[in-house]
Simulated assay, not measured.
Amino acid sequence: MAIDFPGLSPAQSAGNRGKVSEQQTQATGNNTGNKPADNTPARSDDTVRISDTAQALQRSVGENSGNADVDSNRVAQIKAAIEDGSYKIDNERIADRMLQLDSLLG
């Protein structure tokens, strides 16, 4: 599926995935049948809306950025357990947490 970006030539658009030599040929104007690029500027009334979920995630990241405390002793314990093979993974707990996160996001 090709994406049309107004104001870009075919060689610049994301939909053109040909060989480099084909792109250079198109960029120099040796291609026939393609219409010339529309050089109109972007409309000033274009808008972007971020979903409520994305805004909530962004707020939560901002709130937690000051709480970057890391328990280095706990990290050392986990590393040691992984190295000696005694670290056990609780698959059910991981699945439950993933489902909780999914219900928050969905």
Rank of each mutant, 00 (worst) to 15 (best):
R43K: 09
P41G: 05
N34H: 06
D90P: 04
R93G: 02
N16Y: 04
T32W: 05
D71G: 03
I50M: 06
A2F: 10
Q77M: 05
F5W: 08
G18E: 03
L101F: 15
N67V: 05
D52R: 09
D90T: 07
T32F: 06
Q23C: 01
Q26K: 10
T47H: 10
N31F: 11
L8W: 08
G106T: 09
G7D: 07
M1E: 11
P6E: 04
Q12F: 01
K19W: 05
A68N: 11
R93W: 04
V75H: 00
L99Y: 05
R93S: 08
S86I: 03
N39A: 04
R97P: 02
Y87L: 03
T32P: 05
T28L: 13
R49H: 15
A54G: 04
A76M: 10
T28W: 08
A11L: 01
E92S: 12
A11E: 02
P36N: 08
N64K: 10
S72D: 12
V75Q: 03
K35Y: 06
G33F: 05
D38A: 10
V20K: 15
D38Q: 14
K79R: 14
Q100T: 14
Q58L: 06
T53I: 10
T40M: 00
T32A: 07
G33P: 02
S103E: 12
Q77T: 07
Q12R: 12
R97D: 15
A27E: 05
I3H: 08
T32K: 06
S65A: 12
P10C: 12
R93L: 06
A2I: 14
R97I: 09
R43A: 09
R17H: 12
P41M: 01
I50R: 02
N91I: 10
G15H: 07
A80Y: 02
I78H: 02
I50E: 04
T53M: 13
N16L: 03
D84S: 11
L8Q: 15
T47E: 15
Q55D: 11
A14E: 13
I94N: 05
A95I: 09
